[in-house]
């Protein structure tokens, strides 16, 4: 078995005495898109920062293509940084307003000391075209662009180093509907072209459905369910995943219905229960604490296991 492009094993991050991310396992296989979904406070963004080693974990391991990054110093990480890049939600804040788009896109090459200045300029222009912008934009500034165009620049900057893993944190959330589709398509095309593996962090289940191969659902720092996308949308097992799916507005006025809402207590009261014999792997039996257990078809759910 080959190593996954990105893997998190039992990663934990505490802020004060609160665990923002609690023993999270996550696998992004090569050339796949894994969506990390959850609401505010779920720890999904923190998990992304931990994966990028932009935040130090309190425990667990982060592996990039099988190589454990956890013991490495920031300096020793530098070569690995080329392999793993990020796009954030707010492209306006993440692009230096004083730099031209060409400079912004070429900057990572300069940081890693790649190519001559002239070659870097050429690369930047090529990447502008690759993300669907005119090469002439190289001399323009971020404020001259629309939100969607800026997000294209952010994607170009992230991918110019040819990373194997892209962490995209809500990259389409600030965009208009008609532009959102453009960016989702751009990510899909580039993913196919470059064989990228993407960790797509989002609260938008509609985008996730069209883009992701697998979905990981987080709730209060824990992974509560993980399954291939179709399985999540067709047969979610965890009550929280179901509540999330149920809350998405339906595009059909004829399908209007009254929803019933569950409180946090009701959701934890309905944690699924399984007998050990029903499961694919052998879990710990008779612990009161819920654990992530394997069902058929790479479907994992947090559940209480009885003997």
């Amino acid at each position: 078995m080959t190593a996954a492009a990105l893997e998190l094993r039992q990663v934990t991050k505490r802020f004060g005495d609160q665990a923002a991310v609690d023993r999270v396992d996550l696998v992004v296989p090569h050339n796949k898109v894994v969506a990390l979904v959850g609401e505010s406070g779920s720890g999904k963004t923190t998990t992304g920062l931990l994966a990028l080693r932009l935040l130090a974990a309190n425990g667990g391991q982060i592996l990039l293509d099988g190589q454990d990054l956890t013991p490495l110093s920031q300096k020793a990480l530098k070569p690995f940084r080329r392999q793993m890049q990020v796009v954030f939600q707010d492209s306006y804040a993440s692009l230096d307003p004083m730099m031209t788009l060409g400079e912004i896109i070429a900057e990572p090459l300069g940081i890693h000391g790649l190519f001559t200045a002239a070659e870097r300029r050429d690369q930047a222009r090529r990447w502008l075209e690759k993300v669907g912008l005119d090469a002439g934009y190289a001399t323009r500034y971020p404020h001259e662009l629309s939100g969607g165009q800026r997000q294209r620049v952010a994607v170009a900057r992230a991918l110019i180093l040819g990373p194997s893993v892209l962490v995209a944190d809500e990259p389409t959330s600030a965009l208009d509907v008609s532009v959102k589709a453009q960016i989702v398509n751009l990510l899909q095309d580039l993913q196919a072209d470059m064989g990228l593996s993407i960790l797509f962090i989002s609260h938008d289940l509609s985008v996730v459905r069209s883009l992701a191969d697998e979905v990981v659902v987080m709730l209060r720092g824990r992974v509560v369910e993980r399954a291939p996308t179709d399985m999540i949308f067709a047969g979610a097992r965890h009550p929280y995943t179901r509540a999330l799916l149920d809350a998405v507005p339906v595009l059909d006025p004829k399908a209007r219905r009254r929803r019933s809402f569950m409180s946090a207590e009701e959701i934890s009261a309905r944690t699924p229960r399984y007998r050990a014999a029903e499961l694919e792997t052998q879990p710990l039996v008779d612990t009161a604490e819920p654990q992530l257990v394997a069902l058929a078809g790479s479907h994992f759910v947090e559940a209480i296991v009885t003997g």
């Binding site: 589709a181 289940l205 985008v207 996730v208 595009l251």
Partner: peptide, 8 residues
């Protein structure tokens, strides 16, 4: 609008 039908 994304996500109207199943599948990537």
């Amino acid at each position: 609008v994304p996500g109207q039908t199943a599948g990537k």
